[in-house]
Amino acid sequence: MLDVLKSDFYKARRMTNFLILTILAIIFPVFSAVGLRILETGQDITVISFLESFKPPIHIFSSMFTVFFVVEEFKSGRLAAIVSSGVTRVDFFVSKMISSCCFAVFLFAVSTIFAILVGVFSFRFGHVSKSFFTSLFSNFMTIIAWTCFSFTVSFLIRSAGSSLVFMYIFQGGITIFLFSLNAFLNYRFNININLLNFWIFSALEYDLMKGVLIQLVWILLMCSLALWSFIRRDIVSGADRKI
């Protein structure tokens, strides 16, 4: 499996998407700082609020990269060649998961480092509290959750556009649904339960350690589903689908 992983890193480093997304991950903190400076809201800009200001784009970048990275193997037809070379489907799957997570962490690290540098320069960030590290860890886990979710969807749908649309609509849709269900249960049955505590993308907002456990369970379930589907289904390349 080590060879499969090396090959994945070799390919990913040469993807144009990776270069563009890395540049965007660097640029966003700069734009964010410039924007905040121009607006001069009068509120104190802390390092945590500054990092939170561009958290959503970084999640989107990592999920986009994962989708393109996975789907390209199906679309190009190279997956069939890889599997027919004796690489097991499990090895391929695990290697793709590890390399996707590594690149997501890389994007996260790059944007965070630049954010801190830009923030120190622009807003004279000084003291760093314990909550900074908690926030950083929370961001890190959310990136991993998004990566695993996009990884699962890519393996199931095998098309970049459809995967991205499904992901964002599904995530938004579920969040709205759970929010509405909370209100319904509370109003109708007087049940005071927050179902968003159990959703992968919002679990960390309420309790960090429980949220991490819930995320890990979700990640395990999603990846198991993707692996089971991948092992059982035929591999049809994008070139074949066009014909």
Partner: peptide, 19 residues
Amino acid sequence: DTARKKIGSSVENPCLYMW
């Protein structure tokens, strides 16, 4: 899986990493 390591193959349409 061991046997397929000794096989070289190409199936129909050229399957390459275009980038």
